[in-house]
């Protein structure tokens, strides 16, 4: 009972802080303040996911949040000077949004009891798949098509970003984010091995415990960014054939295994008996490399002219 009270008050504090930070981010005058508010929001949101019993999601949220932060901070320099809507219009919009939020609240509070769930159905085949983590089973077996196409979405976004370059240097390396300093140098030498080990761990346990390719890939991308910010590694040239091959490897392996399913056991993206786990691990490893690379390349941006000096 006491623990229940504690949990409830913890949840209440978390929710109130979460909403306060979100409100601050929307209403802040300055773009940079809004960005910083949003970054804090992301951290609190990861905690909320833990409280909702979704550790896989919490890890993804925290990792992606860490990658979004430098992107947003960098972009806060391009905050436009566009004026927000006029006060009467804002009032009308606020009323409309409050109406929508209110309707949603009514729906949430009147949600059906007992709640419908696919948990039982999702757990039943886990033994045959030899997986312990049901979320991984959803991502790589039951709804594998979604996951496959989602990597294609990321790839399309990357191609879209690449297409924003000047004609003459679109296959060159992106502008270097390097801002070297002795402490950053130290961090960039010490942290990446640790990060890589943690990433491998996340990937490896992902079949049976929270974790998996997205979380691992994000961590690897962050380590890559750190190396480049410290000036230890230059960004790669985007036309490089090996780089392209690594980008394509993940979706290509996934697709190849999916198509092989047509022949054996006879259905696209189905795994032969007893082969599910090894094949899923192969797919996850290939996807980790490709997604890590795609995330990093998205952060680096389109190809740019080499610094002339």
């Amino acid at each position: 009972m006491r623990a229940g009270m504690m949990n409830a008050s913890l949840d209440a504090v978390l929710v109130v802080t979460l909403l306060a930070v979100a409100l601050f981010s929307v209403l802040a005058r300055q773009a940079r303040a809004a960005v910083i508010g949003f970054i804090a929001f992301g951290l609190l949101l990861a905690l909320a996911w833990v409280r909702l019993g979704a550790v896989d999601v919490a890890l993804t949220e925290a990792a992606i949040g860490a990658l979004t932060a430098p992107l947003l901070l960098g972009a806060s320099a391009f905050a436009g000077t566009e004026k927000p809507a006029s006060p009467p219009l804002r009032l009308a919009l606020a009323a409309l949004c409050a109406l929508i939020a209110g309707t949603l609240a009514v729906i949430v509070l009147a949600a059906p009891e007992p709640a419908p769930s696919l948990a039982m159905q999702a757990v039943a085949p886990l033994g045959a798949l030899d997986l312990g983590n049901a979320v991984t089973a959803v991502l790589l077996a039951y709804r594998a098509l979604d996951t496959l196409l989602e990597t294609v979405v990321v790839l399309l976004a990357l191609i879209g970003i690449w297409s924003l370059a000047h004609d003459e240097n679109w296959r060159d390396a992106p502008a270097s984010p390097a801002a070297p300093s002795p402490p950053l140098d130290l961090l960039a030498r010490v942290l990446p091995p640790v990060g890589l080990v943690v990433a491998m761990h996340l990937l490896w346990v992902g079949a049976d415990a929270p974790g998996g390719k997205f979380q691992a890939a994000t961590l690897i991308a962050a380590m890559g960014l750190l190396l480049m910010m410290a000036g230890l590694t230059p960004p790669p040239a985007l036309g490089d054939a090996r780089l392209r091959a690594l980008v394509v490897a993940g979706p290509a392996v996934f697709l190849a295994i999916g198509l092989a399913g047509f022949l054996f056991p006879g259905s696209f993206l189905a795994y032969p008996d007893g082969w599910a786990k090894p094949l899923i691990i192969v797919i996850e490893m290939a996807l980790t490399v490709s997604i890590a690379l795609m995330l990093l390349l998205m952060l680096l941006g389109p190809g740019a002219r080499k610094p002339s000096a």
Partner: peptide, 15 residues
């Protein structure tokens, strides 16, 4: 790790 990252980050901000 937090100590390490915090030290580097604040040093960069100070710079």
């Amino acid at each position: 790790l937090a100590l390490f990252a915090g030290a580097v980050a604040s040093q960069m901000i100070a710079r």
